[in-house]
Amino acid sequence: MPFRHREIADDLRQQITTGRLGPGKRLSSEPALAAHYAVSTGTLRRALSVLQGEGLIEKFHGRGNYVRRPLRRFMYVGGWGTFDPWTAADASLRVTVRTAMVPAQGLLADLLDVPTGSPLAEFVCVSHEGASPLGLARIYLPHDLAPAGPLGEEPLYEQTAKRFAVLSSSPAEVRETVCARPPTPDEVSALRISPTATVLGITRTATDAVGRVVEAALLVFPGDRTDAVFITHHTAAERQSHP
Rank of each mutant, 00 (worst) to 15 (best):
L21K: 05
R46M: 15
Y37L: 15
V220G: 08
G62T: 07
G24V: 06
L151G: 02
P147V: 10
A228K: 09
P115A: 01
I202G: 05
R6T: 12
R212A: 14
G78I: 06
G42K: 03
P171Y: 00
R72D: 09
V210D: 05
V199M: 08
H36N: 09
G53H: 14
P70M: 07
P195N: 05
H5F: 08
Y76M: 05
F123P: 06
A217P: 01
W86H: 02
P185Q: 07
T184N: 00
G135P: 00
L33S: 11
L134E: 05
V229G: 07
T232P: 06
A137R: 15
V213I: 09
T87N: 05
F83C: 11
T235M: 14
F60S: 12
E238W: 15
T17K: 00
R72N: 10
A32L: 11
K25S: 15
V126L: 11
K162I: 00
I231M: 07
L51N: 02
T160V: 08
L48V: 11
E173L: 06
G117M: 02
R45V: 11
R138F: 02
G201L: 12
D224G: 02
V77R: 03
R73H: 00
V114E: 02
A35H: 00
G42A: 05
R98M: 04
Q15P: 10
P155W: 08
P31Y: 15
L200M: 13
G22K: 13
F3L: 13
G117C: 04
A109Q: 08
L218S: 09
H233V: 15
V229M: 12
R69H: 03
T87D: 08
Q52E: 14
Q15M: 09
P142R: 03
V214C: 14
A197E: 15
P183I: 12
D84N: 01
R46D: 09
A131K: 04
L112H: 03
H61I: 09
H242N: 02
A180R: 10
H128I: 08
A172R: 10
L167E: 00
S92N: 05
L167A: 06
D84G: 04
E173S: 03
A190K: 10
D144E: 13
L136C: 07
A206I: 08
I193G: 01
E238T: 03
R239N: 07
Y66M: 01
T203D: 03
A206S: 15
V124Q: 03
L108Q: 11
A197N: 11
L167V: 13
I202H: 02
V102R: 14
V67E: 05
M1L: 08
D110M: 13
T184Q: 14
V229L: 15
D110R: 15
A89P: 01
G24E: 06
R26Q: 07
R163Q: 09
G78P: 13
E158P: 05
S127A: 15
F74P: 09
Q15A: 13
A206V: 14
A209F: 14
V214P: 02
V213H: 13
R225Y: 03
L145C: 04
R68E: 00
R181K: 07
I231S: 13
L107N: 03
S49D: 11
V178S: 02
A165Q: 03
F230V: 14
A206T: 07
A228C: 12
G106F: 10
L21T: 14
L56C: 05
L120M: 11
I231A: 08
A47M: 07
I231C: 11
E153I: 12
R69I: 04
T160K: 08
A32C: 03
L151V: 04
